[in-house]
Nucleic acid binder design. Structure first.
Lengths: 197, 197
DNA sequence: GTCTATACAATGATAGAC
DNA sequence: GTCTATCATTGTATAGAC
């Protein structure tokens, strides 16, 4: 420390989000980001694996969180309780300050197909992690798959509401509410018999 | 026709799959593909939007197929019947010769992260298409979402078995069997009460 | 109407100097 | 750690050949 300005990664991150918000993701070059941060392209690519990952910075731990949540659930937990445990562990990472980050990121994501593709990949990785953790506890691959889809759907739906509204409820509340609503919807499909509207 | 060798797209496609199989996707350059096809990079990028799409050639119509399947289902169809209609329309496109294509593509896909990312994006697009078609018929966004996840999961699981085994059953059979099995798994989750194993 | 040649911008890797 | 420099590759743009 001392020879250069500190927090190169933080400066790059802020510079990138500013430029992405101002001109869109695609219209911003990595050289421009580095320049605004007072660095060069080389340093940017040493600190970030690629341009897309700048936007998803810090989301790598989510996979570990959802897995740990399921693994640390009580031994007598039901299938639904395992999903809730995974989602609670995941949601706990979303502190109120991340709400602002989410609001910044949403329009950036919308501005680039390349970025949405990476976002979908992240969702898929999260689903696979939950699916495999559930599989190890339940022993049934199909149940694990169905529950993982349901849980991650609840997570993303809860996230969308959380960043859109402005109140004091925790992120976890939104996700668990959505999970319950999705489970209700699924139950109705089974109990409604074979005739639809 | 006549002035140049015909079927430039087909030649590029074959050249690409050969090279991808021989050296892997990442180690093959677009210039090499064009050269083997007796063409140039310029022509390749006029016929394919990008390098990844070479591998997924022809999958664009799948979105339209699943949507049409749901839309053309009888007016008194139940929710489950709508999903089956979408999947049948989708599966009908998988003629036996596509089985060989699938067997060629699987190891190529496994060789590249970039390619798996695009594959996940395609799955997501298919899920969204089914979800929206179901939403228009059912009027319930959560039911549509849950059913779309279930249906596309059945489609991919059926596909995996279809390319792996060697018998005369149609692709549609595998998908519908898997759908029924997933629905069973989901039902068990609801009727099993709250205690798991 | 299809292909080629050339030039170009951007991402990302790499090597060596400070 | 960071910089300069150079490089390979993807993908675009343009102008022209047949």
């Amino acid at each position: 420390m001392g020879r250069w300005e500190p927090d190169a990664q933080g400066r790059l991150l802020r510079a990138a989000l500013e430029l992405f918000s101002e001109h869109g993701y695609d219209a911003t070059t990595t050289a421009q980001i580095a320049e605004r941060a007072g660095l060069t392209k080389t340093t940017l690519f040493r600190l970030f694996p690629d341009k897309r990952e700048i936007v998803f910075q810090g989301q790598g731990r989510l996979v570990a969180l959802v897995t740990a949540g399921v693994e640390e659930a009580p031994v007598d937990a039901s299938a639904e309780e395992l999903v809730r445990a995974g989602l609670c562990s995941l949601s706990a990472a979303h502190t109120p300050d991340l709400r602002e980050t989410g609001r910044t990121l949403d329009p950036i994501l919308a501005s680039s197909e390349e970025l949405r593709e990476r976002a979908v990949f992240k969702r898929s990785a999260l689903t696979s992690a939950l699916e495999q953790a559930l599989m190890r506890r339940l022993g049934d691959a199909r149940q694990a798959g169905v529950l993982a889809d349901l849980g991650i759907r609840a997570y993303y739906a809860g996230y969308e509401i959380w960043v859109a509204v402005e109140d004091q409820r925790s992120f976890t509340d939104y996700v668990l509410d959505e999970l319950a609503a999705l489970q209700d919807a699924a139950r109705q499909l089974h109990t409604a018999g074979s005739r639809g509207a």
